[in-house]
């Protein structure tokens, strides 16, 4: 699989992409401070994202009853699940130690 030409292309693409990403981050960090137009564009982009993207949907989460109930449910079940995880971990550990 790793020797297939198309897969090599894929790996090369991904590698180059990550190199591009880190080069972009370094450039962004070190470049001269944002100009007025950049800040304006950024802010306008954020505004439009709030209007017609998932960001706005995530922001009015409280008014949708089911979602906030799901989040409450997840925060309720986290404690028993963590307890079960600790118990299960200790159990598996003891069993592995005992049987060897």
């Amino acid at each position: 699989m790793l020797q297939k030409p198309w897969f090599k292309f894929f790996i090369w693409f991904l590698t180059t992409f990550f190199f591009f990403l880190s080069a972009g981050v370094i450039i962004s960090m070190l470049k001269p401070g944002p100009s007025e137009s950049e800040v304006m564009q950024f802010m306008m982009g954020m505004m439009s994202a709030m209007d017609n993207s998932m960001m706005g949907v995530a922001m009015n989460l409280e008014s949708g009853g089911l979602l906030s109930r799901i989040i409450q449910l997840s925060s309720v079940i986290i404690i028993p699940l963590v307890a079960a995880g600790i118990a299960g971990g200790i159990l598996i550990r003891l069993r592995n130690k005992g049987w060897e």
Partner: peptide, 19 residues
């Protein structure tokens, strides 16, 4: 989406980036 300095990575298209 990190900040105004980084916006050029996706041409300031905050909505798409968010999506």
């Amino acid at each position: 989406m990190v900040g105004a300095k980084y916006g050029w990575l996706l041409n300031f298209n905050y909505g798409t980036a968010d999506y």
